[in-house]
Simulated assay, not measured.
Amino acid sequence: MRIAPFPLALLALAAGAVAMPMPGWAQSDPAAARLIEQLRPRAGGATRGIRLPSAPAPGAAAEAAPGAAPAVPAPPPVATTQRPAPRPPVVPDTTAPEGVAAVSITVTFPSGSATLTPQAEARLAPLGRALSSADLAPFRFLIEGHTDSVGDEAMNLDLSERRAAAVRDYLIRQFGVSGSRLQAVGLGETRLLVPTGDGVNEPRNRRVQVINLDG
């Protein structure tokens, strides 16, 4: 009797050897794909973790087998005075509220200017591709401009507003993102990503933060 060949694809699935590949566009544009994942609305609900076996209650004795030797108690733990090395402080990714889909992008401008440099446009290009993708098309976004603490507070606030507007205009002009989906606001030095004193030149604070308003 002749046995019909089993499809190779089903054989592979049965063996658990088939891995789902990334979409072709994501492989060629990983920066935009990463931003899409960061800016998707985050699903709510509790996370289901792996339930580990529970430890026996303190003082509970295990039932001994007949004829078994009595259990010898374990020696008490030896106290140690060695302390773990202090960990460096962790800088958060954004100053957005917890659970809100957001991303911060460091954008370079000439000192005192709201004109985007070629380097700034290169940093913003993946964001433009992400926001114009079908994955993020249904959502609206807040474009926040932030500065470091160098200079006058009022001047930094005005500068951050103009820079946020420049980023918004660039995304509309170069990537066709609808202006109705983008709202620009400047926050100056009021929400520093890296807390510093006045007059500190901290590049990570000179950034644009993008927040999903529908997430």
Results as ranks from 00 to 15, higher is better:
residue 153 E to W: 12
residue 178 S to P: 09
residue 160 S to D: 07
residue 137 A to H: 13
residue 182 L to S: 10
residue 122 A to Y: 03
residue 120 A to L: 11
residue 121 E to D: 12
residue 112 G to F: 05
residue 153 E to A: 15
residue 136 L to K: 00
residue 174 Q to M: 09
residue 137 A to P: 12
residue 132 S to W: 07
residue 124 L to A: 07
residue 131 L to Y: 03
residue 159 L to T: 08
residue 177 V to S: 03
residue 109 F to P: 00
residue 177 V to Y: 05
residue 118 P to Y: 11
residue 179 G to I: 04
residue 161 E to I: 07
residue 133 S to C: 06
residue 134 A to W: 09
residue 99 G to R: 00
residue 154 A to V: 11
residue 181 R to C: 04
residue 96 A to V: 11
residue 159 L to F: 11
residue 160 S to N: 08
residue 103 V to H: 03
residue 132 S to T: 12
residue 135 D to T: 08
residue 128 G to P: 13
residue 161 E to Q: 13
residue 109 F to N: 02
residue 117 T to N: 10
residue 186 G to I: 11
residue 101 A to H: 01
residue 129 R to M: 02
residue 159 L to E: 06
residue 117 T to P: 08
residue 142 L to D: 09
residue 105 I to R: 06
residue 161 E to K: 10
residue 173 R to N: 14
residue 139 F to Y: 15
residue 138 P to F: 07
residue 116 L to R: 04
residue 104 S to R: 03
residue 164 A to N: 01
residue 109 F to L: 00
residue 155 M to C: 03
residue 113 S to V: 06
residue 101 A to E: 01
residue 158 D to C: 01
residue 163 R to I: 03
residue 167 V to I: 14
residue 178 S to I: 06
residue 119 Q to R: 10
residue 174 Q to A: 13
residue 152 D to Y: 02
residue 140 R to I: 06
residue 122 A to Q: 14
residue 146 H to D: 15
residue 169 D to T: 08
residue 182 L to T: 11
residue 106 T to H: 12
residue 136 L to V: 00
residue 148 D to G: 10
residue 147 T to D: 10
residue 120 A to K: 09
residue 112 G to C: 05
residue 142 L to C: 03
residue 96 A to D: 03
residue 124 L to W: 04
residue 114 A to P: 11
residue 174 Q to I: 00
residue 129 R to K: 13
residue 181 R to D: 11
residue 99 G to P: 02
residue 99 G to S: 03
residue 122 A to E: 13
residue 105 I to A: 08
residue 153 E to G: 07
residue 98 E to W: 01
residue 169 D to N: 08
residue 164 A to D: 01
residue 166 A to Q: 05
residue 97 P to V: 06
residue 158 D to N: 12
residue 117 T to C: 05
residue 112 G to D: 08
residue 169 D to E: 12
residue 125 A to H: 04
residue 120 A to H: 10
residue 123 R to I: 02
residue 180 S to D: 15
residue 113 S to N: 08
residue 108 T to S: 14
residue 121 E to L: 13
residue 116 L to D: 08
residue 175 F to D: 07
residue 115 T to W: 01
residue 139 F to C: 00
residue 131 L to R: 01
residue 169 D to A: 10
residue 124 L to C: 05
residue 163 R to P: 04
residue 108 T to M: 12
residue 125 A to W: 05
residue 103 V to F: 00
residue 102 A to D: 00
residue 117 T to K: 05
residue 189 E to M: 15
residue 176 G to E: 10
residue 155 M to A: 13
residue 166 A to H: 07
residue 181 R to M: 08
residue 175 F to V: 09
residue 111 S to D: 07
